[in-house]
C-alpha cells in the first residue's frame, strides 16, 4: 500500500461523508465536496477532451510528423507550428505530431470554428460563435433525424407487429403491448379534446404510462441503493487498519464539526 493510495482513500472517505452530511442538513462540508466536484469535473473533462481529440486528431492532422527538409508553403506552415511549439513543446513536439495522420488542410475548418467558439468570451466578436453553433446544431439535427427515423420509428413499428395467435402467454403479451402502444399514442394526440370515447381510450393510455413511471421509479430506487452499497463497500474497506481507520476518523471529525456548527448556531441564532 503506497502513501498516495492511503492519501487517496482518506480523500475519498472525506468526500463521501461530506456529501452524506447533507442528509442531516446543508453545511460547509457538503459545500466543499459539491464545489470540488463541479470544478474538478469541468477541468477533468476539458483536459481529457484536449489530449484525446484536439491535440491528436485536430493538431495531429494539421501538423503531422514530417521527415526530411521542408520547402515552400510547407516550410511556412511548419514555421507557424514551430512558433506554437516555442510556447508549449508538449502540445506541439518538434518535427510534428506523430499520431498516424497525413496532413489534411480541410481540418482548418473545425479549427476556425473552434476558435469562433472561444470568441464568445470577447463580446465584440461573440457573434462569430453563432457560425460554430449553427454547424453543431445542423450536424446534430441531421445525424439524429436519421438515427431516430430508422431505429426509433421504423424499427419500433416493426417491433410492435407481434403474433396475435401464438401460445396463450405470448398472445396476452402481444395484446397488452398493442393496447398500451395505441392508447398511449391516443393520450399524446392533443388536436382533439379528451372527452367521450376518445377520453376513455386516452385514460387507458394514462394507466399504461403510470405503470411505466412506476417501473422507472422502481429502477431508480434500485440504482440509488446500488450506489449506496458501492460507497458503503468502500467505507468499510477504508475503515481497516491498512488505511489507518480512515472512515472512523473522518466520520468522527465530521460529526464533531457539525456539532460545533450546531452549537454556534444555537448560541447566535440571529447570525444564521
Amino acid at each position: 500500500m503506497t502513501g498516495m493510495e492511503i492519501f487517496g482513500a482518506w480523500i475519498a472517505v472525506f468526500l463521501t461523508l461530506a456529501i452524506f452530511s447533507f442528509l442531516y442538513k446543508d453545511n460547509p462540508f457538503y459545500k466543499i465536496a459539491e464545489h470540488l466536484f463541479v470544478g474538478i469535473s469541468a477541468g477533468y473533462w476539458a483536459a481529457i477532451a484536449f489530449w484525446n481529440q484536439i491535440q491528436p486528431n485536430l493538431f495531429g492532422r494539421l501538423w503531422p510528423k514530417v521527415d526530411g527538409e521542408l520547402s515552400g508553403l510547407k516550410a511556412f506552415w511548419y514555421g507557424i507550428y514551430n512558433f506554437f511549439g516555442w510556447f508549449h513543446s508538449g502540445i506541439f513536439p518538434e518535427g510534428g505530431i506523430d499520431k498516424g495522420h497525413e496532413i489534411d488542410i480541410w481540418y482548418l475548418i473545425p479549427f476556425v470554428l473552434g476558435m469562433f467558439m472561444i470568441l464568445r468570451l470577447w463580446p465584440k466578436f461573440g457573434w462569430l460563435a453563432r457560425w460554430s453553433m449553427a454547424y453543431i446544431v445542423g450536424l446534430a439535427a441531421g445525424l439524429r433525424l436519421y438515427g431516430f427515423l430508422s431505429s426509433n420509428i421504423i424499427s419500433q413499428i416493426k417491433g410492435s407487429a407481434l403474433p396475435m395467435f401464438d401460445s396463450v402467454g405470448t398472445s396476452i403479451n402481444s395484446i397488452l403491448i398493442i393496447i398500451g402502444t395505441l392508447t398511449g399514442l391516443f393520450y399524446f394526440f392533443f388536436s382533439q379534446e379528451h372527452t367521450g370515447i376518445f377520453g376513455k381510450i386516452s385514460r387507458v393510455g394514462i394507466w399504461f404510462l403510470m405503470i411505466s413511471f412506476g417501473a422507472s421509479f422502481g429502477f431508480a430506487v434500485m440504482g440509488r441503493i446500488s450506489l449506496l452499497i458501492g460507497r458503503f463497500y468502500d467505507l468499510i474497506t477504508y475503515s481497516s487498519a491498512e488505511y489507518f481507520h480512515a472512515s472512523w476518523w473522518v466520520l468522527g471529525l465530521i460529526i464533531i464539526g457539525l456539532g460545533i456548527m450546531a452549537f454556534k448556531e444555537k448560541a447566535s441564532p440571529e447570525s444564521h
Binding site: 419500433q156 417491433g159 411505466s212 417501473a215 422507472s216 429502477f219 431508480a220 434500485m222 440504482g223 446500488s226
Partner: peptide
Amino acid sequence: ASIQVNEILP
C-alpha cells in the same frame, strides 16, 4: 444502470 432499463426495454 438501473435508471436506463426502461429506456432500453423497447
